[in-house]
Nucleic acid binder design. Structure first.
Length: 275
DNA sequence: CTTTCGTCCTGACTGC
DNA sequence: TGCAGTCAGGACGAAA
C-alpha cells in the first residue's frame, strides 16, 4: 500500500536508474488502469528523453523532453521494477518501457487502482488530479498553524480528515494511524476540536513518521532492489498498524492495541495513550 | 455546502 | 485438499 514514503522511495530509486535515458519502446499491455490511458500515450513516450523525477503527494512526475510529464499513481498494489529485457512480461505488467541502455521499466499493478497520465509541464499545477491536493507534509507550508486552519469546522474524525488528500497530500491509512499514535491523539477526536497545541504535536508526528519511513526505505532500497528489481515496498516496523491485540509499545495498558473501523477502514490505536 | 458510502480489482487469508 | 467467502485499501462519484 504505497503511501508518501514508499512513493518517495520509488521516485528516488527510479531517478538513479532512468534519468537522462531515452525511451526506445513503450508497450501498453492493456488500454486502461483506473481510467483509460491518454490518447497516443505510446507514441508520446517513444523517443522521449527522461529528465528529472518529482513527486506530489502519492503521484510520481517524470519529466519527458522539454515539456512533457508522465504522471504515475501506484494505487493500492502498484509496483515499479527495473531490470533487463531478458525477463518476459509478467502477469499484471501493464506498462513496459524499454530505455536506450537496455533497462526495462515495468509498471505492475494487480488490482489496477493505479493511474498513468500524460500532461504538458505548464499545466501541472492546474491538472485536475493535482490541483486540489493539500500541502506536502514535509514542506515548509505544513505545520501546526496550517493544520488548525485546515481542520477548523470539520465535523469529521481526525482520522478521516488526515486521509483527505485536500488537507494534506500523501498520507494513507498506515501513516495516519502511526502519526496519531505518535501524537497521542484519538483517531475519533473531531477534527474541529484540535487546537494549536495538539496541531503542533500532530504536524510534528506526521513529519517524524514520514521521515523515518523514508529513511528506512532508503536504507533497504539498495538490497531490496538487487534482489528482484522491485521498487515500492519495504519492510518497516509499525507501532500500531496491523497489531490488534498486541501490547501497545511504551505503554502497559491491559487492552493493548485496538482495531476499530472508521469510514470502512481499519484504525489501529491505543485507547489509553491516545485522547 | 459537507460528509458518508459504494465501487473498482485481485490476491492473501480464513474456515468449513 | 479444495473452495467459497471475506478482507485489504486510494480515490472518485453518487447519495444523503
Amino acid at each position: 500500500m504505497p503511501e508518501l514514503p514508499e512513493v518517495e522511495t520509488v521516485r528516488r530509486g527510479l531517478a538513479l536508474r532512468i534519468s537522462g535515458r531515452r525511451i526506445v519502446r513503450a508497450e501498453l499491455r492493456r488500454p486502461d488502469l483506473r481510467r483509460p490511458f491518454p490518447p497516443a500515450l505510446a507514441a508520446r513516450l517513444e523517443g522521449a528523453v527522461i529528465g528529472g523525477l518529482g513527486r506530489r503527494g502519492k503521484y510520481i512526475l517524470i519529466e519527458l523532453d522539454a515539456d512533457g510529464v508522465l504522471l504515475l499513481h501506484l494505487g493500492m498494489s502498484g509496483r515499479v521494477t527495473t531490470g533487463s529485457a531478458a525477463l518476459p512480461a509478467a502477469r499484471h505488467d501493464h506498462v513496459v518501457l524499454t530505455l536506450d541502455d537496455g533497462t526495462v521499466i515495468r509498471f505492475n499493478d494487480p488490482r489496477r487502482f493505479g493511474l498513468v497520465d500524460y500532461l504538458n509541464r505548464g499545466e501541472t499545477a492546474r491538472h485536475p488530479l493535482l490541483a486540489g491536493l493539500g500541502p506536502e507534509p514535509l514542506g515548509d507550508e505544513f505545520d501546526g498553524r496550517y493544520l488548525v486552519k485546515a481542520l477548523a469546522g470539520k465535523l469529521t474524525p481526525i482520522k478521516a480528515a488526515l486521509l483527505d488528500q485536500r488537507i494534506v497530500a500523501g498520507l494513507g491509512n498506515i501513516y495516519v494511524c502511526e502519526a496519531l499514535f505518535r501524537a497521542g491523539l484519538s483517531p475519533r477526536r473531531l477534527a474541529a476540536s484540535i487546537g494549536r497545541g495538539r496541531a503542533d504535536r500532530l504536524a510534528a508526528a506526521i513529519r517524524l513518521v514520514l521521515t523515518e519511513a523514508i529513511a528506512a526505505g532508503g536504507s533497504s532500497l539498495r538490497n531490496y532492489v538487487q534482489a528482484d528489481g522491485a521498487l515500492g515496498y519495504f519492510q518497516h516496523h509499525w507501532a500500531v498498524y496491523g497489531r490488534e491485540g498486541e501490547p501497545c509499545p511504551g505503554c502497559d495498558c491491559a487492552e493493548g492495541v485496538r482495531r476499530i473501523v472508521q469510514s470502512g477502514r481499519s484504525t489501529f490505536f491505543c485507547a489509553k495513550r491516545q485522547r
